[in-house]
């Protein structure tokens, strides 16, 4: 089963539509048990990171997400979902986040228009099945004012330039996170979800094995 975590993120419907378009029937859930028993978890996100943390906490989901990641189960975090994985964010004052990837979330430089809104290129920094069939420097749709700055660059799987060179795709074990919105990024975005789900749902657990787990 594919679980899409419902913690009040406004773009939940778009994520559901994209996954259904690929032929899957995802479960939209706020039940810890459902999330813990799913083969793949998607953590959507728009809006402020502080609010998102609060909303996750309100449905008892923060430790559940940490557990899913700790157990190296496939999880795809989107936009604010990616930011929540880091230690803390500067958005709206300093807020603690899930702290599963060391690093902070910072404000984009003010020299350019903020939010960073529109289609921008993702430079693939690693070879990974997530990028299968997607050309290097393909365009994806971004909308955000903050960006993640990981301490350990080995998690950086894709980068995008906007005033800074930022981590736009993070991968660690079976955890995947994108700063852009695959559900709003046309064919490449759908392909990325499809690649993730293929890895997550393959019987052999190929996804986990790829990195030798």
């Amino acid at each position: 089963m594919i679980a899409i975590v419902d913690y009040g993120a406004g773009n939940l419907g778009s994520v559901v539509n994209a996954i259904r378009k690929l032929g899957y029937q995802p479960a939209v859930t706020r039940e810890p048990r459902t999330v813990l028993s799913s083969a793949a978890v998607i953590l959507p996100g728009v809006g402020a990171a502080g609010d998102a943390m609060e909303n996750l906490g309100a449905i008892g989901m923060t430790d559940v997400i940490r557990k899913v990641i700790h157990e190296k189960r496939p999880l795809f975090a989107v936009c604010v979902g990616l930011q929540l994985l880091f230690s803390s964010t500067e958005e709206g004052g300093l807020h603690k986040c899930l702290d599963v990837i060391p690093g902070t979330v910072k404000r984009l430089p003010q020299s350019l228009k903020v939010p960073h809104m529109g289609w921008n290129q993702v430079k693939q920094q690693v070879r990974h099945h997530l990028f299968s069939g997607i050309p290097d420097e393909a365009n994806f749709y971004f909308v955000h004012s903050y960006y993640a700055d990981p301490e350990d660059i080995s998690v950086v799987a894709g980068t995008t330039d906007y005033g800074v060179s930022m981590c736009s795709v993070a991968i660690r074990d079976n955890l995947v996170a994108t700063q852009f919105h695959p559900e709003k990024s046309g064919n490449w975005g759908l392909r990325m979800y499809s690649n993730f789900l293929e890895m997550a749902l393959s019987k052999e657990g190929r996804y986990g094995k790829e990195k030798g787990n």
């Binding site: 994209a18 378009k21 990024s185």
Partner: peptide, 8 residues
């Protein structure tokens, strides 16, 4: 529209 169009 949102079921078949995957742009903003």
């Amino acid at each position: 529209v949102s079921k078949q169009v995957f742009i903003p």
